[in-house]
Design a protein around this nucleic acid. Structure first.
Length: 267
DNA sequence: ATGGTTGTGTGACAA
């Protein structure tokens, strides 16, 4: 059976509900993982998602900042909200669902952006990002026997040269510094994760999922970065049928600065 | 080098 999963940093789910609804009607993924919902759980617009057939909603939100949500056509169980760095931020949510005969745990993550100065000694936000990455090293794709895994989200790191518009110009810019890109590659290697998007759209193709609001003409300038990712356990790699980045969503009305990333597996 | 924009919730901060 085909199984389609999408991830999208939505930058306020309430403000952007119209484009989220349009996306769901157009693409009809089985699962949508949102980040930066900026919405307390009690104010999350669950009804709008139920009306579109997404009857299963898992929330880890807070007022004003951060927040992740996983909405699904398929039922799920074993909801976990992990408190990375033990500071109470709403940055992680995972659920386990049955897809055909297979069990899959879906992790939804919003990694700290890390501020502007890439020095953990003087910038506590960058220290936090590196600490978060260190904690992610404990996440293993094969952590649960008999359960496959998918890890998605705004990971706020563009790991490869082709994941940014200019490798040289971004080497000292937070999201593409060597300590971050090496750290992410270590998380992938040690956790035995597969980068599904790069499996389907391999290097050296340039690929971005985020364009700053501050650019005058994001499309023409195209100074993007690939900050949003979909990884899986190795067993799912051979089942991948397609991976897409919905670049056009950056040009929609009142857009997020991130666009949806979508994979389809044949389970 | 600097400044550029958006969101929350009406301040200052986060991204």
């Amino acid at each position: 059976m085909p199984f389609t999963l999408a991830t999208w940093n939505i930058n306020s789910v309430r403000l952007r509900l119209p484009i989220v609804e349009a996306f769901l009607q157009a693409e009809s993924p089985d699962v949508l993982c949102l980040q930066e919902t900026k919405c307390p759980n009690e104010l999350f617009p669950e009804g709008a998602f139920r009306a579109l057939g997404y009857e299963h909603v898992a929330l880890h939100g807070q007022k004003g900042y951060h927040g992740v949500a996983t909405i699904s056509r398929l039922p799920f169980a074993d909801l976990v909200r992990q408190d990375f760095c033990a500071i109470g931020d709403a940055r992680h949510l995972s659920v386990r669902m049955a897809v055909g005969d297979r069990q899959i745990r879906v992790h939804n993550l919003y990694v700290p952006a890390g501020g502007d100065e890439p020095d953990p000694e003087i910038n506590p936000k960058f220290r936090h990002k590196l600490d978060f990455l260190e904690e992610m090293r404990l996440m293993r794709a094969d952590a649960e026997p008999g359960v496959s895994a998918i890890l998605v989200g705004d990971l706020n790191i563009a790991p490869f040269e082709e994941d940014v518009w200019s490798h040289k110009q971004l080497l000292k810019i937070v999201s593409h510094t060597p300590v971050e890109t090496d750290g992410m590659k270590r998380v992938i290697a040690e956790g035995n994760w597969t980068d599904l998007v790069r499996q389907h759209i391999p290097l050296p193709s340039k690929l971005y999922t985020w364009w700053s609001y501050r650019a005058k003409d994001w499309d023409a300038a195209d100074k993007g970065r690939r900050l949003d990712h979909i990884w899986s356990s190795a067993d799912l790699g051979p089942h991948l049928k397609e991976a897409r980045v919905l670049r056009e969503a950056r040009g929609w009305d009142r857009p997020s600065d991130h666009v949806p990333v979508v994979v389809t597996l044949d389970i």
